[in-house]
């Protein structure tokens, strides 16, 4: 079943009530009622969540793992988890997108840190940029981010930007980041936090932090 023909079907488990909303109605729902409908077994609601967020979820997993098969597995897992445990999403704690991406990132990092995936990834790093793992993150970063986000990032100094890049897109622990950059661990830890705070202010100003 494709996303397109999914939209013409009836809900799988429940034919009545709010869970039986038409796709046009679902598209107007906010995060909390959408997840509520998912909790009531509305496959259309899950499809709507997929339509809204799968690009970001899959893109992040792909960027982190550099492996299409693994990225697709993670994407599938993230949305099935939303289906199976919708109550884990708390609308009071942030958007559905940030909830899904946090899970995507966490699971991808788990994979990266597992031995086999690490080997695959390091092989690809070596092929893409021999002798410079850091350059790969830099390259991916530059290619993938929108102008508004790059602009916000440019407000960070090198000391804050690089640790965030290496940890978030490189999948390194902050201790590894400290080693790569030759900085004390405490300094890296503080700069990541202050960098995220500064980034938030910049993204707020640019109107792009409501993801």
């Amino acid at each position: 079943m494709t996303l397109g023909d999914r939209n013409t079907g009836r809900p799988r488990f429940l034919s009545e009530g709010a869970a039986a909303m038409r796709p046009t109605e679902l598209s107007t729902l906010g995060d909390a009622p959408l997840v509520t409908a998912i909790g009531r077994f509305s496959q259309e609601a899950l499809g709507e969540a997929y339509r809204r967020h799968s690009g970001a979820v899959h893109g992040l997993a792909r960027r982190l793992l550099r492996d299409d098969t693994l990225a697709e597995e993670i994407t599938q897992e993230v949305f099935l988890r939303l289906w199976n445990d919708p109550e884990k999403f708390d609308a009071g704690r942030g958007s559905l997108r940030s909830f899904l991406l946090a899970h995507t990132h966490g699971r991808s990092i788990d994979l990266i840190r597992s031995e086999s995936a690490r080997r695959t990834r390091e092989d690809k790093d070596a092929r893409l940029a021999p002798g410079s793992g850091q350059d790969v993150e830099e390259e991916v970063w530059e290619m993938a981010l929108a102008d508004s986000i790059q602009e916000a990032l440019s407000t960070l100094g090198e000391g804050e930007r690089r640790p965030i890049e290496l940890a978030y897109f490189g999948g390194h622990s902050y201790r590894e980041v400290a080693e790569i950059l030759g900085e004390p661990e405490g300094t890296v830890k503080s700069r990541i936090r202050s960098g995220l705070k500064r980034l938030r202010v910049s993204l707020d100003a640019a109107g792009v932090s409501n993801a």
Binding site: L60, A102, A146, A211
Partner: peptide, 11 residues
């Protein structure tokens, strides 16, 4: 997490 989600917004 909202900031990090914004970094992944254009895919």
């Amino acid at each position: 997490r909202t900031v990090l989600a914004a970094l992944s917004a254009d895919m």
